[in-house]
Simulated scan of single mutants.
Amino acid sequence: MNHPRHDLDEVIHAPVRFSIVAVLAAADKAEFAYVRDTVEVSDSVLSKQAATLEKAGYIKVTKGFVGKRPRTWLSLTARGREAFAAHCAALQAISESARASA
């Protein structure tokens, strides 16, 4: 039998990326500044972690304008939603297996 930790997603597992994906899982899309403030990271940290998630196909980054002000929005892709759900299920399975063996 495989330990459920083998089902953890290495891309999502990093604490900041996990936090970003969790915020995005609760919405269709979120403005960059909202995610930054909610996750409590700097612009550069969010940019770097968002790029990693985008490269994995888990998030989509959309740029546009509100009036004359440039804005960036982040959203989870279908693949990202599936990966997040599977990662959370693996965390739950790890927790349950630990309780069952105690």
Rank of each mutant, 00 (worst) to 15 (best):
R36I: 04
L91H: 04
I12D: 01
A50L: 02
E40G: 03
S95N: 12
R17I: 08
F84H: 13
I94C: 05
L76A: 09
A22C: 14
A30K: 04
D43W: 02
S101F: 02
M1K: 09
Y34V: 12
A33Q: 06
A25S: 14
A14Y: 08
V39P: 05
T62W: 08
S44R: 14
V66D: 11
Q49Y: 01
A86G: 03
R36S: 00
A56C: 09
F84V: 07
L8V: 04
A83V: 04
I94Q: 04
P70G: 00
L46M: 11
P70W: 06
L24D: 00
E54L: 03
A90W: 01
F84D: 04
A50W: 00
H3Q: 07
F65D: 09
D37M: 08
K63E: 15
A56R: 01
S95V: 10
G67H: 11
A50G: 06
R17L: 10
A86W: 02
A22F: 09
A27C: 06
S19C: 05
H6Y: 14
A93C: 10
V11C: 03
R99Y: 14
I59W: 02
A22R: 14
T62F: 10
R69C: 07
K48Y: 15
Y58S: 03
L8Y: 06
A78Q: 13
K68A: 13
L53K: 02
E82G: 02
F84N: 08
H87S: 00
V16R: 14
G64D: 10
V16P: 05
R79V: 13
A22M: 15
L53P: 01
E31F: 05
A85I: 04
H87A: 03
N2S: 12
R36Q: 10
G64L: 07
K29E: 09
V41E: 07
F84P: 01
C88K: 05
V11A: 08
R79W: 01
E96N: 12
D7C: 01
W73K: 00
L8M: 09
R17Y: 09
N2C: 03
C88Y: 02
A30D: 05
A90V: 07
S97W: 06
R81D: 00
P15N: 11
Y34N: 04
I20L: 07
L76E: 02
K63F: 04
A56M: 05
R99L: 15
E54P: 00
